[in-house]
Each structure stands twice: as structure tokens, then as C-alpha cells.
């Protein structure tokens, strides 16, 4: 009935025009979103003559991966001509522990804050939550001092610590909002059966958690991998994460500007998070909207 009412109202030809218009707008926006990706991939496959002589939008004449090889293992970053490879592994060894620590701590904190509500639990959560939104400029200076005192300035360990701490606010938010939706009766029944804090976490809560764990892991991985501010502030030279190294590669090339190598470097830097997005986009979106939609 409702469908009939809906479709009989506008005349068929006007509905058709609307439909065409709709698709036109959708496709124009799709082109706009895809343009940079197309340009970056295209440029990375051209040689310099082709870039200077041809059009930005032209397809490459052949699939030439030499710029990729150059960006990965030969390009000079500062005085070291190692390519992005060592920095890529820096980022990997920074991101993995950072993700694990912040997710584990976030899960436990979120569980304790929702299922074992103690006096002041809401205040504790509110204080942690604000940590999500603090502009990091306000913590950079004391952080640099603290890392210096512990003796882990300019190391991957320093960045692991930084990302674990500042990621904790987000992971706590994710787990807290997720655990709120698990009925308290489950926990209460288990308590009556004599199960304790960790038994309940292990036996009841964890088995229900995989969806939110995936959200947390993906979010943290993307955040840590894409970070630039902390990397630029606390590391120099060989300890830099890939985003910082890539920016240096693009901006300090002496001599001939190699646009194809720049674009290949951008692509290599973007690849891990893009792959995660392509294969687990649903969870990525959930993490993205979790900070703004009530749990």
C-alpha cells in the first residue's frame, strides 16, 4: 500500500530524471574522491620524462615499478639512502605493541567500570573520556622531558609508551560503551555461583567481546600508523616512523625532484591502513562513529 502511494505520486518521467540526476551527483563525488588515488598510483608508475611531458591525468604508458623499488629500498631520507624499508618496520614494531597494550588495558578498564560499578566510576570514566579530545600540543613538552628522563627518547619504545597511553582513552570508551549493552544479570548470576572478577571476565565477557576487540584493534592500528605529530616530536633519524620518514623523503630531496618516487612512497605509507580498511571496513566505520554516537 505505502509503496503504491509512494510510486504513483510522481509521474514516471520525472522519477526517471530524478534518478539520472541522483546517479550523476553520486558519480561526480565518486570521481572527486578517487581522483587523488588515481593520480598517486598513475604518477608512481610513470618515469620522469613521461611526468614532465604528459598530462597528470594520462594513463602511464607501461607498468613501471622502478619508482616503487626506489622508494622502498634506495631513496635518500636525510643522509641515509635506505628507502622507506627500515622506517616501515619501525612503524610495525611501534604499532603492534601499542595496539595490544591499549586494547587489553581498555578492555579491563571498560569491564570494571561497567560491570563492577564502584563509587566514583562515572567520574573516572568522564576524566578518561576527556583524554580522547585533549589537543596533544598540551602534552608534547612534558612528554619529551619524561621520555628523556626514562632514557627512551628517540626510540620505538618511547613511541609505544606514548601511543599506549593516549590510545587508552579511546579503547576504554569503546569497551565501556559495548559492555554497557551486556545485561548485568549475566554477571550477577555468575557472582551468585561464586565466580570472581577475572573468572567472569574470562568466561562470560571475553567470549562476547570479539566484535569490539576488532573495532579497537583496527582503530588503534590506524591511529598509531597514521600518527605524525608524536613521531616528528620525539624521534629523529633512524628511529622515525614511516609517516615522518615519508614526509622527509618528499620535502628534502636535493637535486632533481622525483615525483614518481614521492608518490610511490605515499602509496607504500598508505598501504597497510588502506588494506585494513578494504578488508575490514565495517569495523573501521564502527570505530569511527563510536566516539560520537551514544553507546
Amino acid at each position: 500500500m505505502s509503496d503504491a502511494a509512494r510510486y504513483s505520486a510522481p509521474r514516471p518521467w520525472s522519477a526517471l530524471i530524478l534518478r539520472v540526476l541522483l546517479w550523476f551527483v553520486l558519480i561526480v563525488f565518486a570521481i572527486w574522491f578517487l581522483l587523488p588515488a588515481y593520480v598517486v598510483v598513475g604518477t608512481s608508475l610513470k618515469d620522469l620524462d613521461e611526468i614532465r611531458g604528459g598530462s597528470l591525468l594520462a594513463l602511464p604508458h607501461e607498468l613501471n615499478f622502478s619508482a616503487w623499488r626506489h622508494a622502498w629500498s634506495e631513496a635518500c631520507i636525510g643522509v641515509e639512502c635506505t628507502g622507506l624499508k627500515p622506517y616501515f618496520w619501525n612503524s610495525v614494531s611501534m604499532a603492534l605493541p601499542g595496539v595490544v597494550v591499549s586494547t587489553l588495558l581498555g578492555a579491563l578498564t571498560g569491564y570494571a567500570l561497567t560491570k563492577w560499578k564502584f563509587k566514583g566510576a562515572n567520574l573516572v570514566f568522564a576524566l578518561i573520556l576527556f583524554g580522547c579530545f585533549v589537543p596533544f600540543q598540551v602534552v608534547i613538552l612534558p612528554m619529551a622531558q619524561t621520555l628523556g628522563k626514562i632514557g627512551i627518547t628517540n626510540t620505538v619504545y618511547g613511541l609505544i609508551l606514548v601511543h599506549s597511553v593516549y590510545g587508552l582513552a579511546f579503547t576504554t570508551l569503546f569497551f565501556r560503551n559495548y559492555y554497557v549493552t551486556i545485561p548485568d544479570e549475566l554477571v550477577r548470576a555468575a557472582t551468585i555461583d561464586g565466580a570472581g572478577f577475572f573468572t567472569i571476565f574470562h568466561r562470560i565477557i571475553l567470549p562476547l567481546s570479539p566484535p569490539i576487540i576488532v573495532v579497537s584493534v583496527i582503530w588503534q592500528f590506524t591511529q598509531i600508523w597514521n600518527d605524525f605529530l608524536f613521531g616528528a616530536s620525539f624521534t629523529t633519524g633512524g628511529a622515525q616512523p614511516i609517516t615522518v620518514a615519508m614526509n622527509n623523503l618528499v620535502n628534502t630531496t636535493t637535486g632533481v625532484k622525483q615525483y614518481n618516487v614521492d608518490m610511490a612512497a605515499a602509496l607504500i605509507t598508505a598501504a597497510p591502513t588502506l588494506l585494513v580498511y578494504i578488508f575490514a571496513g565495517r569495523y573501521f566505520v564502527r570505530g569511527l562513529t563510536a566516539g560520537s554516537v551514544k553507546g
Partner: peptide, 22 residues
């Protein structure tokens, strides 16, 4: 939707580099 949202998965550093080239 996947096309519209993919920029959110990459670093602002890459967005800046790509647009600077464009």
C-alpha cells in the same frame, strides 16, 4: 560508500602529499 570513506583510513600526511602534487 567504500569509495566515499576511504580517505578517512589514510594519514593526513598522505592526503597533503597527494593534493600538493595535484
Amino acid at each position: 560508500r567504500t569509495i566515499y570513506l576511504y580517505p578517512m583510513a589514510i594519514s593526513f600526511i598522505i592526503t597533503g602529499t597527494a593534493w600538493k602534487w595535484i
